[in-house]
């Protein structure tokens, strides 16, 4: 089997660091299993939301009355560009082992991610203060806060993880262990962006259309 043949799905080291590439198979496959089980968690929350947003309005506001599509669009762009920036951090790591480059792109990724979390918290603030849409108001809003809150919590823990990895890159350099951790963080970060596609489509856009 040639080295370029990927041993595991997703982001890889291929020929630039063959030994770490081989070692990556187990840990990255394990991480994929975690990601998929995390996806199952989100799927259950999506299913709950889908039922609640139609049948659980009670006396509260309807989705179209509380959602701000412009904010949702900007949040989508922030997360998309942050995912893209992480891709460039991985390229710096894979082809140049350039610490400064990796740290710089990680910083860009982190700032965009933090902007995303900040905008979402602002959304919550506006919904609660301007529309009185608290989680206790209706089943729809409980499910909404649960779903988007779980996602925001994932993004926030991704930011903490990113800060920890930045420190590790400074202290340990780009050792094989650090590389594998960065690759797992990259998978985690890209996967959160995939989950967000579901949120902006099935929560925000579906909510406003129907």
């Amino acid at each position: 089997m040639s080295l370029s043949e990927r041993l595991h799905p997703g982001i890889n080291l291929a020929g630039t660091d063959p030994e770490s590439h081989e070692a990556a198979e187990e840990v990255l496959f394990g991480f994929w299993i975690f990601l998929m089980s995390d996806l199952v968690l989100f799927a259950v929350l999506f299913a709950t939301y889908a039922a609640m947003s139609v049948q659980g309005i009670a006396e509260g506001p309807r989705p179209a009355e509380v959602f701000d599509l412009t904010a949702a669009f900007l949040e989508t762009l922030l997360l998309l560009f942050s995912s893209f920036a992480f891709g460039f951090a991985m390229l710096e790591m894979k082809y140049r082992e350039n610490r400064r480059g990796v740290l710089g792109w990680l910083l860009v990724t982190g700032l965009l991610g933090a902007g995303f979390v900040g905008m979402e918290l602002h959304d919550y603030y506006v919904m609660v203060t301007a529309h009185g849409a608290t989680p206790q108001t209706s089943g729809f809003l409980s499910a909404y806060y649960l779903l988007t809150g779980t996602h925001a919590l994932h993004v926030s823990s991704g930011l903490v993880w990113m800060a920890v990895m930045a420190v590790q890159v400074v202290v340990f350099g780009l050792s094989p262990a650090v590389k594998l951790r960065l690759m797992r963080l990259a998978l985690f970060w890209h996967m959160l962006d995939v989950v967000w596609i579901g949120i902006f489509t099935f929560v925000y856009l579906y909510g406003v259309v129907s």
Binding site: R6, L7, H8, P9, I11, W32, D193
Partner: peptide, 13 residues
């Protein structure tokens, strides 16, 4: 972004 393609991944994955 996640580089999943049908040709080169292991079948297990």
């Amino acid at each position: 972004f996640l580089h999943i393609d049908l040709q080169r991944s292991h079948r297990d994955d």
